[in-house]
């Protein structure tokens, strides 16, 4: 098993696109699925995924492990992930710097955590346990956040870099999340990216966001994954790729899912940016 996604563009797989993908045979580098959607035992989901897997590289992306949670990891869920990963041997497994369960209840959202020495130690322990149990390196994704904690004493990039150092994990850089956070917290996305440890980045995510305002009328962007990638995010992506070189890059579109050609066109836009950067570096 190659534990590295091919360095091209991919999309998040949606079952409603299965027939169109089968007919279209798009030249994509990989597909990504949410692990939890394939934790049933059989039926159509697994038939479709097995079929896709015959042709394409695969990223399994977890949304429910609650790596940033206060309590111990859910061992039953980790066992389910192990079964799924053993079954499909994906090129990549990733999860989030976030929590989603607390006190035995699952909240179905990627919730923020303070960045402190204590939370750093806890998250590092959790990543270590995941990697030991799954027998592979994982990628950790930078989150979209809407609030910040007074007790946070470590910057997010520093927090991620230290997790990489302590656990050997890789990173999934979500460029839309960088833009959303910078907007929401009045920080500089380019400064964040200038400091980012690109050598650890095994995958990039691109998705759409919605716009709202906060109590003070300041812009508040929501990581909604229900629209095209925004122009400023494309610009940041181009800058990242020009600097770091091509990386496996994924279009996420999970809500208000468009027809297949629209999603494919988004992936082609990413592929063109990757190809240009690859050609420029080769020249």
């Amino acid at each position: 098993m190659t534990q590295q996604l091919p360095c091209g563009a991919g999309v998040g797989f949606k079952p409603e696109h299965f027939a169109a993908i089968a007919a279209d045979a798009p030249p994509l580098a990989f597909f990504e699925v949410h692990a939890e959607n394939f934790m049933g035992e059989g039926g159509r989901p697994h038939a479709q995924l097995a079929r896709l897997r015959e042709t394409y590289a695969l990223s399994i992306h977890g949304v429910g492990l609650s790596i940033g949670g206060e309590g111990p990891l859910d061992r039953a869920h980790l066992a389910r992930l192990k079964v799924l990963i053993d079954r499909y041997a994906p090129e990549s497994f990733s999860e989030h710097l976030a929590w989603s369960s607390h006190g035995g209840a699952f909240f179905n959202d990627l919730l923020p955590l303070p960045y402190t020495p204590a939370t750093l130690a806890r998250v590092a322990d959790h990543i270590g346990e995941v990697q030991d149990r799954l027998g592979r390196r994982m990628l950790l994704e930078n989150p979209s956040t809407y609030v910040r904690f007074e007790e946070s004493s470590i910057g997010e990039v520093e927090f991620l870099r230290e997790l990489v150092r302590r656990t050997g994990c890789g990173l999934l850089l979500d460029v839309n999340n960088v833009f959303v956070c910078a907007t929401n917290h009045g920080t500089d996305a380019r400064a964040y990216l200038a400091d980012f440890p690109f050598e650890a980045v095994g995958e990039i995510h691109l998705g759409g966001h919605d716009a709202d305002v906060d109590d003070a009328g300041a812009p508040l962007l929501i990581d909604a994954h229900g629209s095209p990638v925004a122009d400023p995010v494309w610009t940041l992506f181009g800058e990242v790729i020009a600097r770091a070189g091509p990386r496996p890059s994924l279009i996420e579109w999970d809500n208000d899912v468009p027809d297949w050609p629209v999603l494919r066109a988004e992936a082609e836009r990413a592929a063109a940016i990757l190809a240009r950067a690859g050609a420029a570096r080769a020249a």
């Binding site: 909240f107 303070p114 809407y146 609030v147 910040r148 904690f149 007074e150 109590d215 508040l220």
Partner: peptide
Amino acid sequence: QPPPGLAGPAGRRFAVYRNNVAVGL
């Protein structure tokens, strides 16, 4: 009400999470 410990006026910001949880489930 938003929980204690958040930076700045966080009412509408925290409401995003509250809404995500309710709408998602």
